[in-house]
């Protein structure tokens, strides 16, 4: 029993070493410079590039998890049957909205609220297809 546990741990260690080495060649979507900027602002000091990349990968994973949760909310909303046909949106494109984002973030303990009549850009209130970035 003990020996098998030890072997398992050995496998874990070698996988971790391999993973950390592979981070040297991996380019995360969040650039190193940005992560380093935020790390140095928060007092985190480490000369190892692999750790910077690990932080970048962790942040990327977090953001993509939140985004895919929001995407599920968006798809569910679009798939829901609408009684009034005139209210059915014509545009079936997947757009990241504050509504979906705040629903997705609630699960992560982030309370995000959007003001009811907040105009975030001059084009707010126009045709929804024309006010995307």
């Amino acid at each position: 029993m003990n020996s098998s546990l030890g072997e398992g741990r050995h496998d874990d260690d070698s996988a971790l070493t391999e993973f950390l080495a592979s981070l040297m060649d991996y380019t995360p979507t969040i650039p190193d410079e940005l992560v380093e900027h935020y790390l140095s602002r928060s007092g985190f000091h480490c000369p190892d590039l692999r750790l910077t990349r690990l932080v970048a990968v962790a942040a990327q994973k977090f953001i993509s998890e939140v985004a895919s949760d929001a995407l599920q909310h968006c798809k569910a909303r679009q798939a829901a049957p609408v009684k009034d046909k005139s209210k059915q949106p014509k545009d079936k494109r997947l757009v990241l909205t504050m509504e979906d984002l705040s629903k997705a973030l609630r699960e992560y303990g982030v309370n995000l609220k959007h003001q009811e009549y907040f105009a975030d850009s001059p084009s707010t209130g126009m045709d929804p297809s024309s006010r995307e970035e």
Binding site: S64, L94, V95, L96, M98, D120, R131, E132
Partner: peptide, 24 residues
């Protein structure tokens, strides 16, 4: 990459801000 075609500017700004806060 997740599958979105577009994003509202406010939503994108908020998510970017939350990502930065996560790193910090």
């Amino acid at each position: 990459t997740v599958g979105y075609a577009a994003a509202e500017p406010a939503a994108l700004r908020s998510l970017a801000d939350i990502g930065a806060r996560f790193v910090q």
